[in-house]
């Protein structure tokens, strides 16, 4: 299967020399798009916090499947629990990657999944707590081969 849209991050090497015949029109999602997506999902912007642990490999050899793990500090009781966690990309044209809704029955606010990333970027995890707090964390990954299909 071919890809309609193909754009590769090129690593300089002794074997490959790359050039593009025409300047690729990069339609990267701007941070603004991500901000809009965050507002769309939560209605406001979060504060950065150490209560979220976001794990993503510093180098992803392929953007089609990047492992992500999120853990939010919370007792997960009826009074204090994480209601929602959302993952955003600051580079994909569609910044919202996924949303998770948790309950006190979750016991632990920890999730892992795999996402498509259209290039080197920061992934942001935002958590909404039962008491209304909205907190975030971000982590950067260098993507060697981008998942172009999603651009």
């Amino acid at each position: 299967m071919k890809h309609l849209v193909k754009r590769r991050d090129i690593l300089k090497s002794s074997l490959a020399v790359s050039f593009s015949l025409t300047t690729p029109a990069l339609a990267l999602a701007k941070t603004d798009d991500m901000t809009a997506a965050i507002l769309d999902t939560f209605g406001r912007l979060p504060k950065e916090s150490d209560a979220i642990l976001l794990k993503i490999p510093p180098i992803s050899e392929n953007g089609y499947s990047v492992p992500v793990e999120i853990e939010v500090e919370s007792p997960m009781t009826n009074k204090h629990f994480v209601k929602k966690i959302a993952l955003f990309s600051d580079r994909n044209p569609l910044p919202l990657l996924a949303v998770y809704k948790l309950t006190p029955r979750s016991g632990l606010a920890k999730i892992s999944t795999r996402v498509r990333l259209g290039g080197t970027q920061s992934v942001h995890a935002i958590a909404e707590m039962r008491n209304g707090d909205l907190i975030s964390a971000k982590a950067k990954t260098l993507v060697t081969v981008a998942a172009c299909v999603i651009l």
């Binding site: 590769r8 090129i10 074997l15 790359s18 593009s20 690729p24 029109a25 172009c148």
Partner: peptide
């Protein structure tokens, strides 16, 4: 959204 294909040429082995 339109992208141009990147053309990659390998030169070394020639």
């Amino acid at each position: 959204m339109k992208f141009k294909l990147m053309v990659t040429a390998l030169i070394l082995m020639s």
